[in-house]
């Protein structure tokens, strides 16, 4: 199948990792997702990046604020279903006009098999935008590194929350017939 999981061969996780290093990211926090597996692995293997495993995504919002208050840039990795957990906590970023960089792997869109993923997946971009987050939705792998870098610049130079949504089309969906 052409449209099955690509994660074993994809280059974009390593490219994003390099982009995060170029953007001087010192802390990464995450709730795991299959789409982020390789990027998380790369961060864990780098002893100059402090990694924090979260129990729920909104912790990562508060963590990002704390890190920046202490002079360190961070990024938050999650799956789209976790965005709903973040809404109220995003208010602390808005009210303090602080930077936030979120990298969100999408479910509930391109080729989704699990109907339970659809409600949050289809609402992810709208929910973030309603909470005041600048959103970039990437559907083509080649555009990811540049988009993540641009997102990091707008986040940390203009003190704003920014999310890059990594489309399910990029990640590849699970073919349940196999």
């Amino acid at each position: 199948m052409a449209a099955t999981k690509k994660k074993t061969t994809a280059k974009w996780p390593a490219q994003i990792f390099k982009t995060l290093k170029d953007a001087d990211i010192g802390q990464i926090s995450y709730v795991p997702d299959a789409g982020h597996a390789d990027l998380i692995k790369a961060c864990l293997a780098d002893n100059r990046i402090k990694t924090t495993r979260l129990t729920t995504e909104e912790e990562g919002i508060a963590l990002a604020l704390g890190a920046w208050l202490g002079g360190e840039r961070s990024a938050l990795l999650m799956q789209s279903s976790g965005v709903g957990n973040c809404i109220n906590m995003l208010s602390i970023i808005q009210e303090t006009r602080s930077p936030l960089l979120m990298l969100v792997t999408m479910r509930g869109e391109w080729g989704e098999f699990n109907p339970w993923q659809i409600p949050m997946g289809q609402g992810t971009a709208k929910a973030l935008e309603d909470a005041g987050v600048i959103v970039y939705h990437v559907e083509v792998a080649d555009e990811l590194p540049e988009t993540v870098y641009a997102a990091s610049q707008i986040a940390f130079n203009s003190y704003r929350p920014v999310a890059v949504l990594i489309g399910q089309r990029v990640i590849g969906f699970k073919d349940w017939r196999k």
Partner: peptide, 22 residues
């Protein structure tokens, strides 16, 4: 002092991010 007036549930982890940065 960093005073939170919102974000209920976020104080401890705000402290964690700060502690790791400093």
């Amino acid at each position: 002092n960093f005073y939170l007036w919102g974000g209920m549930g976020g104080a401890a982890v705000t402290g964690l991010g700060l502690a790791r940065a400093q």
